[in-house]
Amino acid sequence: MEYKDYYKILGVERSAEEADIKKAYRKLAAKHHPDKPTGDETKFKEINEAYEVLGDKEKRQMYDQLGPNYHNGQNFQPPPGYEEMFGGFGGFGGAQGGAGASGFSDFFDSLFGGGFQQQGGFGGGHQTYQQKGEDQSVKVLVSLEEAVHGVEKSLTIQMPMPTRQGGFSHQPKSLKVRIPAGVKQGSRIRLTGQGMPGYGGGPNGDLFLEVDLQNHPLFKVDGDDVLLNLPLTPWEAALGTKVEVPTLKGKVSMNIPAGTQSGAKLRIKGRGLGKADKAGNQYVLIQIHTPPAESDEAKAFYEKMAETLPFNPRHHF
Rank of each mutant, 00 (worst) to 15 (best):
V177M: 09
A300D: 14
R60N: 12
K31S: 03
L266D: 05
S187D: 15
L175A: 07
I179S: 03
P37C: 01
N48P: 00
R178C: 01
P162T: 11
A276E: 14
Q74H: 06
Q117G: 06
F122N: 13
E84H: 05
V140F: 13
G113H: 09
K153H: 08
A298V: 07
Q282S: 03
R267N: 06
I189E: 13
V221R: 02
L228Y: 09
L209P: 15
Q131C: 07
Y51G: 02
K173Q: 15
D5T: 05
D135Y: 06
R271E: 14
L309I: 13
E134C: 02
T233L: 06
G272C: 03
T260I: 08
K269H: 05
V226D: 00
K27Q: 15
L155R: 06
D296H: 03
E210C: 02
P257F: 07
G259M: 09
S102N: 13
E145F: 11
H315Y: 09
E41P: 06
Q118P: 00
A276F: 08
E49H: 00
M1H: 06
D40K: 11
D20S: 12
L266S: 02
K36F: 11
S110F: 00
F107M: 08
L66I: 01
G87F: 11
V243S: 01
D40M: 05
P246L: 09
D206S: 08
Y51R: 09
A29R: 02
P197E: 15
L207K: 02
V138E: 15
G120N: 10
K36V: 10
E18N: 10
E145I: 11
R60C: 06
M62Q: 12
L54V: 06
E52P: 00
Q117N: 12
F76V: 12
Q96Y: 05
T38F: 02
P310Y: 05
I47L: 13
G100T: 13
K4H: 03
L266K: 05
V12H: 03
M85Y: 14
E49A: 00
K59T: 07
G90Y: 10
G124V: 08
L218M: 11
G113W: 04
F92Y: 12
D109A: 02
E17M: 06
K304Q: 14
I256Q: 01
M254L: 15
A101H: 11
G150N: 08
F168A: 01
L285G: 00
A298E: 15
G91C: 11
P180T: 14
H170I: 10
L207A: 11
T42I: 10
P292Y: 04
G133E: 14
F317I: 10
D56K: 10
Q119N: 07
Y82M: 07
E41A: 14
D5F: 02
R14N: 12
L228E: 02
I9E: 08
L273K: 08
E41C: 04
T38V: 07
S102W: 01
P80G: 05
A16L: 09
E13T: 13
Q136D: 04
T290K: 07
G120V: 11
H149K: 15
A300V: 05
E303W: 06
T233V: 00
P234G: 00
G280V: 07
L239A: 05
